[in-house]
Computed example of a mutant assay.
Amino acid sequence: MIEFKLSDSQRFLCLCIRHYNYLNNQEIRSLYNAVGDQKLFQEASLNGVVPIVAHALDKVFSGDIPEHWMAEYNKISQRIESYMNELDKVSSLLANNGIPLVALKNSGITRGMYPYYGACPMGDVDVLVSKKLFRKAHKVLTHENYKLKFRCPFEDDSLEAAEHGGGAEYSVNLPSGEHLWFELQWRPVAGRWIQPDQEPDADYLIQRSIPIEGSDVKLLSPEDNLLQVALHTAKHTFVRAPGFRLHTDVDRIVSSQKVDWSAFVKRVIQLKTRTAVFMSLAMAKSLLETPIPDSVLKELSPAKWKVKLMVAWLQRVGIFEPDAPKWSKFGYIIFVSLLYDHFSDLVAGVFPKSEIMKEQYHFKSNWLLPYYHCKRLANLVLLRVNT
């Protein structure tokens, strides 16, 4: 078990963003009265969790809460409803073209297991399709006026670059007047430091996915879903934007579904992602009291020195306020290196196998390997979103 030092305001936020069915009403009431409404609203705003906290307070105080909480909840609820309507529309269009679609992360959790839209703030919708059907799906989307456009200024807005990198981003205006960023992925995680052989295969995940009643959208199996969100949280180094609220993904999956922990642990070890997944699960348990078995954490735990170092570092850079500066470039690289289970995995992450390099950069000659390794290293170090 890991522990973080929390202020009363931070403890309050942790209590309020827990799964709706597991709120500690008494402690929430006590902290709310002790800290004060304005201070807590400010803290929730800084952490992007106002609507989630509003949902909790509405239950705890039986609707008797200041209007500014519910105003934000209702605004987000309308936005997410329009997102989910669009997700259903796209899934039907793709299904009619023989393309199964799986909703990832918060998108899948919201559509498939946590239908309190106002308590599910998200900046985009993420979906997974087979790589073999990626271009076909792109064609369907562009026919619906989806514009291929990466938010990161360093990315090349081309289908070829999207296909090589693991997925595409699209900009679209919805009938509701909302704007949506839609991410079409064939790699389920696609982090710069996460290699393709360290993340589950998309076709494998799609084959194991489960239907959502009343929709063509599919949801990852509980074990696959938990693994994917744990790796995604690690990809954001647990604290980078959207930061703190990412831990609700782990909490909602574990609290809503029955996880085959034995199969889950086996898969994590097979993919050599023990450290990253352990930290994601341990943080959810520490901060949100997510019911993750101690035996699972014990089996996945890396060396004690590594856990102690990472916890202390995360405490220093700040678990909360995701938009605040977190890492220097050098610090970020060192911290990410700790996410690898073994030194050999780190070397493989920095210098991938020749086959992976050739597939990613589309070349055949071994003579070009040094050039593309240098190009990849430059991308890893320089072309990185500020942290």
Rank of each mutant, 00 (worst) to 15 (best):
N173T: 15
D157Q: 11
G165M: 06
E199C: 10
K266S: 15
E163N: 13
C152K: 11
L227Q: 03
I212T: 10
D203F: 06
R192G: 11
S221V: 06
S255P: 09
K149T: 09
K235C: 00
K147P: 10
P211L: 03
F244E: 02
V254F: 07
Q270N: 13
E160D: 11
K139R: 11
K266N: 13
Q198K: 12
E183V: 06
G177K: 12
T275N: 09
K218I: 01
I206Q: 05
K235L: 09
S221T: 13
V172I: 14
E160C: 06
E178T: 03
A190E: 07
P196A: 11
D201K: 14
T275A: 08
V265Y: 09
P222G: 06
P153K: 04
R192F: 13
P175N: 08
V189W: 01
Q195D: 15
R245M: 09
H179K: 15
K149P: 00
I194S: 00
I194R: 07
S158H: 02
W193T: 01
A263T: 04
S215G: 10
N225Y: 13
G214T: 02
R267T: 14
S171N: 10
V268R: 00
P222I: 14
Y204W: 14
S171K: 12
R151M: 11
V265S: 13
I194W: 02
V254P: 10
G165K: 04
V250G: 08
D197Y: 13
H247Q: 12
A161T: 11
E183T: 08
H247I: 12
F150E: 07
W181P: 02
L281W: 03
A162P: 07
E144W: 01
A168I: 11
L159P: 01
A162K: 05
